[in-house]
């Protein structure tokens, strides 16, 4: 089992944001996670990535604890955040950080990026912060795909992309290794319909619906 979330509760200032959540992701699962704003989707993902200390319950990713064995957990996950972060490093520096910390060859990132018409080498010395919204998103996607992970976690990855880029992105995803699982947070199921085989609906910190499609 890739991800095992068991009876997880997380509160912020006394309000339960995750309320006794149970969820399992097996390898090969392509999950679309939906739910209204504030349902707790991002919080659940962040708990899986070891950013939050949960109040009760247990999370295992590839059999590892996200807090106690964060490096092991993160080695197997590629993550794209909800909004591109304002990173002040140049593309070159940012890519060396990723390449050195995660063991991804730089060339692999350039190659993934060029599949989405993003020329990283030409913008090498630009700060990430100064790229256009769509370019940022493309680079984050290229990084996530070139890092060979068993789980891809995307928090609304296509929000900033133009239709053409979105199409490219989905095309890239159809070529994913079949053993690789994905967890998409999205508000537009119609767009990723062909890419997912399971749908999870969250509301008020609970999983209210979980079905295969």
């Amino acid at each position: 089992m890739l991800v095992d979330v068991k009876n997880v509760t997380k509160s912020f200032q006394g309000t339960k944001v995750l309320d006794d959540v149970n969820m399992q992701i097996l390898s090969g699962d392509r999950v679309a996670m939906m739910g209204p704003n504030g349902a707790g989707k991002t919080t659940l993902i962040r708990a899986m990535l070891g950013f939050y200390h949960i109040n009760s319950g247990k999370i295992l990713v590839n059999g590892f604890d996200p807090i106690k064995q964060r490096v092991k957990v993160l080695e197997g996950i590629s993550f794209i955040p909800q909004l591109p972060p304002p990173i002040k490093l140049s593309l070159d520096e940012m890519i060396s950080f990723i390449s050195k910390s995660s063991g991804v060859p730089k060339e692999a990132i350039y190659e993934e990026a060029s599949k989405m018409d993003l020329d990283v080498k030409a913008n090498k010395h630009k700060q990430f912060l100064k790229l256009s919204g769509g370019m940022k998103q493309k680079l984050l996607i290229a990084i996530a795909l070139s890092k060979k992970s068993s789980l891809l976690v995307f928090d609304e990855p296509t929000a900033n992309l133009d239709p053409r880029a979105r199409e490219h992105f989905y095309k890239l995803l159809t070529n994913l290794d079949s053993s690789c699982s994905t967890l998409f947070i999205t508000h537009r199921l119609d767009e990723i319909e062909g890419l997912v085989n399971r749908k999870i609906y969250m509301d008020l910190g609970k999983i209210v619906e979980d079905e295969k499609i």
Binding site: V71, P81, S101
Partner: peptide
């Protein structure tokens, strides 16, 4: 605050 930490720490690097 700017979520840079969220991204940078999503790579396998120890705290």
């Amino acid at each position: 605050e700017s979520n840079v930490l969220e991204y940078m720490l999503s790579f396998p690097i120890s705290l």
